[in-house]
């Protein structure tokens, strides 16, 4: 038996998820910011953290986006193999949802076509970037992420030689955050992918950003790596907005996938505190 899901329902759901994410900072991030605010010793950095919490209140109350960079939409679809999408094309529905969120939600039109030349604004934030996986079952899980580019621009990937090992991975991630300095609007969430192929590795880093902020990886060895990288990053002294301080990252999330005998791929996808992803299951 195939379960039917209406394409317009998909569009409407995505529109709602993207808007909600842009106005309302999620509880996990608010909690992490409050902890950082308590722990921060640097007066200017502490001041910034307080203002970011105040900003979240204003954004939710007045329905003004948390940040003027309402990002590029990245939509993850986990499509049950027993689902039949009716009434339209699934990918068109994703684009329609992105379009609706942009116009109905007063989001910024931040996407340009012909990026290497004319850079023509598409006027509705389409196209969204879509990642689909087919899973067992008769449900459709949608995760919609509005990815800001202040942090996206500071992301990096390296195909390390295996000899570099664990310490090579740590050094690469820490150096990436150090070089980014004030640019990605610290405090950041650091998404790290280790393994796979070049494109899989960066996708792991992006997926790492979808985890609840501060939840450690269930695998103890990976969780330990996360906390070691976090400590090293917070020793950099960059602080909130780069004004100097103890808290440069709120969390480090690592995702791992097997790789080839010849390589040790590491990807870093940075995310500012405006972590804007929401999910729904249809």
């Amino acid at each position: 038996m195939m379960r039917e899901i209406d394409a317009d329902k998909v569009a409407e759901t995505i529109s709602g998820l993207l808007q909600e994410g842009c106005y309302r900072l999620s509880d996990d991030v608010i909690h992490a910011l409050k902890l950082a605010h308590e722990r921060e010793e640097s007066p200017p950095a502490r001041h910034v953290l307080g203002k970011l919490l105040e900003n979240a209140e204003v954004a939710a109350r007045d329905k003004v986006p948390l940040c003027q960079d309402t990002g590029m939409a990245v939509v993850f679809l986990e499509l049950g193999q027993d689902v039949h999408i009716v009434g339209g094309d699934l990918y068109k529905a994703v684009q329609e949802g992105t379009r609706r969120a942009t116009t109905q939600g007063y989001l910024r039109k931040s996407v340009v076509d012909r990026p290497f030349s004319a850079r023509i604004n598409t006027e509705d934030n389409t196209p969204a970037v879509v990642h689909t996986t087919i899973v067992p079952g008769e449900k459709l899980k949608i995760t919609a992420l509005s990815k800001g580019f202040g942090s996206e621009n500071m992301s990096k990937i390296a195909m390390l030689p295996p000899a570099k090992g664990r310490s090579g991975v740590i050094d690469f991630v820490v150096a990436c955050v150090d070089e980014a300095g004030a640019n990605p609007c610290p405090p950041v969430i650091v998404g790290v992918g280790i393994g796979g192929t070049v494109e899989k590795c960066m996708l792991l880093a992006k997926e790492a950003l979808l985890r609840r902020v501060g939840d450690p990886h269930p695998d103890a060895e990976i969780a330990e790596l996360e906390s070691e990288i976090l400590k090293r990053i917070n020793d950099l002294g960059i602080g909130a907005m780069g004004y100097g301080g103890r808290i440069t990252a709120l969390a480090v999330h690592v995702e791992v996938f097997p790789t080839h005998i010849a390589s040790l791929p590491v990807a870093v996808n940075l995310q500012c505190h405006s972590v804007r992803h929401r999910e729904a299951v249809l």
Partner: peptide, 13 residues
């Protein structure tokens, strides 16, 4: 001069 990145709602006021 630095303004607070990510505080766009607050700054708009």
């Amino acid at each position: 001069l630095g303004a607070i990145g990510g505080a766009g709602a607050l700054i708009s006021r």
